[in-house]
Design a protein around this nucleic acid. Structure first.
Lengths: 233, 233
DNA sequence: CTTGCTGGATTGCTGAACAATCTGACAATG
DNA sequence: CATTGTCAGATTGTTCAGCAATCCAGCAAG
């Protein structure tokens, strides 16, 4: 089954990235870091010049990002960074709920101690980062916590979908440069959530439901607020 | 909130499709219809000539299809129609199970009679199509049945994800030009599944689980079989 | 206050080009 | 005879210049 040359255990594979992929990554990073706010039209010529790359390459990269719904193509109007509405937030949280509940089912069925350990680590990670005032790391650990939960389903596609949902949420979060009150509750929530995961499936489900609902409500409020101020458009 | 010119109720919107979108649609159809079997490399120049379109346009379309995972890009080797493995089938059914269970939860919570009616219609549609020997329509109704179930969650993203999963499965099915035995059980399964949906959430979940598991097993067997014959590659 | 027009900006798509890379075959080598 | 080197042809990755269609803002006219 393996390759005919089991010479060395050099696990390192040479990674050649296409220019298109690099461009996509660059733009993605810029968007997720909030350097390009939602609603901004991306001028192809400008981007091409900026990245010293052909306009066609930009377009291909944009198609990729469109597939991740980070960006939308408007006919004859070009590329626009996706704007997240309160309705979108509701939808995303509904989807997350469905997917993460599957994770809960898988975990409470397998009771895999490795997963529980990882989750516990992440909870302490959140608490530590919060104490240190490192907002980015709090969010990162939060993301990983939920990703780990979904990973318990052992389905690559579910994990990918979930990652995409979290990426979209991050898009909304860029508007809200570190809402500190939100971070406060994050730590407590995850601790009690983990507790519920150790208890019964039913408790876990309802705890997760509450956790997500709270997050959704807060983010929705935020999005609505900023939409009224009309920073973009 | 509405447009400032509520003149007429002409619901028809002019639909201008980009060439890229049309090309993507054409290729997608060809793939899903089995006209281009999995594993086939798509030569850009040939496609461009065939569709009387520029090579760049083909590439953009391919990026779109890549996002739907109908096609993969291999560095310096170009576009290849995605091949589905038995492992993929397992993964897809796991994901479907998670998503459709969310549909079950939503439906058994709302008890929306409209949804039940639609599902009942589709079951009779399956039975009718099967009696008439119309395999395509059977599969179509099957798809719609499950899509309707997921639609009960009222989440656009969940529905989109589910549709994508079903599209991937269709990719595997092209190999198996109408496995007639499979169709036989489909009718019965859905009828009893609908019954369970009327009963309790728990019954519905387990019925759905059995239904999907059976489908997965059959399709996996099929894929493995065809993989050994090595029709492609 | 709507309509019509106009010029500049930008997109959608094309067609040609060229270097880098892959593929398969064939010769050379030990 | 299995491995390695070499070479030509095919194909991809990317660039470039260009043109028609479309959008947009502003301004003139009704």
């Amino acid at each position: 089954m393996t390759a005919p040359s089991p010479i060395a255990g050099l696990g390192a594979t040479i990674r050649r990235q296409s220019t298109t992929a690099q461009v996509a990554a660059a733009i993605r990073d810029a968007i997720l870091a909030g350097r390009i706010p939602p609603g901004t039209p991306l001028r192809e010529a400008a981007l091409a010049a900026e990245l010293t790359v052909s306009r066609n390459t930009i377009r291909e990269a944009a198609r990729i990002l469109e597939g991740e719904s980070l960006v939308r193509y408007q006919m004859n109007r070009g590329i626009v960074v996706t704007e997240i509405t309160a309705e979108d937030v509701r939808d995303i949280y509904a989807a997350r709920s469905a997917v993460e509940n599957a994770g809960v089912d898988a975990l409470t069925a397998s009771r895999d101690p490795a997963v529980y350990a990882k989750l516990a680590d992440l909870v302490t990670g959140i608490e530590g980062a919060f104490a240190a005032g490192d907002a980015d790391r709090v969010l990162e650990c939060d993301r990983l916590f939920h990703a780990t939960l979904v990973a318990a389903t052992a389905s690559r596609r579910l994990s990918a979908f979930h990652a995409s949902l979290q990426q979209e949420l991050r898009l909304a979060l860029t508007l809200a440069e570190h809402a500190s009150e939100r971070l406060g509750r994050t730590a407590d929530d995850h601790a009690s959530l983990l507790e519920a995961l150790h208890a019964s499936p039913a408790k876990a489900r309802s705890a997760l439901g509450r956790h997500l609902l709270a997050g959704a409500a807060e983010l929705q409020r935020l999005v609505d607020l900023l939409a009224h101020d009309g920073v973009t458009r």
